[in-house]
Amino acid sequence: MNPLELAGARPGPAFTVTFDGRRIEALPGRTVAAVLWAAGITSWRATRDGGRPRGVFCGIGVCFDCLVTVNGRPNQRACLVPARPGDDIRTQEGTGHAH
């Protein structure tokens, strides 16, 4: 059993997004975080000071740990933002803003 089967999901056709340039499949409706988790990816941010990996923590938009850069826009909460076809998702380094 997987969660899609459990809930009897019949999603529309998958589309493609990229994560750090690598193509991954995304189901319609899923957030960026859900798409990345489904692809086995759990970290997409390197912290400002320690450069430590981070991903989803609270899952509901409160903790801001899952910040990610989507289509050049930094500091998007992956757990809130829906993935859209062709999204260019990139690991966010530091503040997410270029120096």
Binding site: N2, A7, R30
Partner: peptide, 23 residues
Amino acid sequence: TLPGVVTAGGAQAMLKGGLVTPG
């Protein structure tokens, strides 16, 4: 703070909303 450590509610929210699990 390691990736893979999530809040219990976060795991549930991702499961309910995204029909996805982290591992």
